[in-house]
Write a protein that binds this DNA or RNA. Structure first.
Lengths: 174, 174
DNA sequence: CCATTCCTGACCCAAACGGTCGACTTTTAG
DNA sequence: CTAAAAGTCGACCGTTTGGGTCAGGAATGG
């Protein structure tokens, strides 16, 4: 009952961090980050020195392949994975899964978007005294980054493997 | 030099939490939240029992008035402010500024958006084993909410007033 | 030289956010 | 009682952008 038919559904499944009963949205994690992390975790599970093709990853993780292609490209550009073209080509981790944190993925995949930012550019928000908030939000953000930089891909991998053992069997036949 | 001419510029001034040099976006605070917080802080500064009109707030905080109108409505519905119509009408805090936290504003103003959420609805993301991330993100979120619920409007008010004293004088003439 | 597989840039679409408008109610001053 | 001030509410609009696609190009292995 866990097999996926269409990818359309997936599009609705943002890794949306909602909580507090009422269903209030607080922070949403872009799909890119979600896909990126999943890709890395999957690669971490493939322990051999072989390359894993995009289509392989896409199939296993139910990520739209052309999209994954581009994400992999970004992961590679920031040195998280290593890629090779041609037959038997694909991707593999560029370093140990213990040396990759979730914040690395965020930084790699969710690249700059803000031409204007009130945090770094104080003149950006030219409000009389509303700057007390700038400190607030910048605090929040550092806290977040700090936390994410402590979560390693290897951790997620381990967690996932134990979950896979205990939880819903996926395509095991024994 | 701190006076504002057009509100158009304001639209670009998301309270965008960017950091880490490279300018990576991690979490963006919607304008609504920003406006909401600023409104409450402003109301907190008006200590009298009088009501403050929307146009007053809008002018002081450089918030587009019709938009503020709607935000105030939301703040009122969630019991953060009290509103009265008619001449001499307006808004005022419904409770002490010490009893209002930033997370209250987030909850009030940034209302439900997610018909589907991977955090509460485990079946939402029907991936084989990717659920290890659900825990990660849900952790992050609780941490965030916890932090925000500790920041009180009164705090921001105090901070802002001291900033106003020390920093750029706004329309003081002495 | 050919098949495979990644890379890259251009492109598309729907949703959501920021913002606006106008009709309607309530309230209070006079 | 009446008019004006002010909030309420629903519908609407335009731009941005995030998720996703496509096609052509460049490596690489056989």
């Amino acid at each position: 009952m866990l097999d996926v038919a269409d990818h359309g559904v997936q599009a609705f499944c943002f890794a949306l961090c909602t909580v507090t009963g009422a269903g209030d949205l607080l922070m949403l994690v872009p799909m890119k980050v979600d896909y990126g992390v999943r890709t890395l975790v999957y690669l971490a599970q493939q322990d051999g020195p072989e390359f894993t093709s995009t289509s392989d990853i896409a199939r296993a993780q139910h990520i739209p392949e052309p999209y994954l292609l581009r994400i992999c490209s970004e992961l590679q550009k920031s040195g998280l994975i290593e890629s090779r073209r041609g037959p038997q080509g694909g991707h593999k981790l560029a370093k140990s899964s213990e040396d990759i944190s979730v914040s690395d993925v965020v930084n790699s995949v969710d690249y700059s978007l803000a031409p204007v930012d009130c945090v770094e550019e104080p003149d950006g928000c030219r409000l009389s005294g509303a700057c007390s908030q700038r400190e607030l939000w910048s605090d929040v953000e550092t806290m977040l980054l700090e936390h994410l930089s402590k979560v390693r891909i290897s951790e997620l991998k381990d967690q996932q493997m134990t979950m896979a053992l205990a939880g819903a069997p996926v395509k095991t036949n024994f």
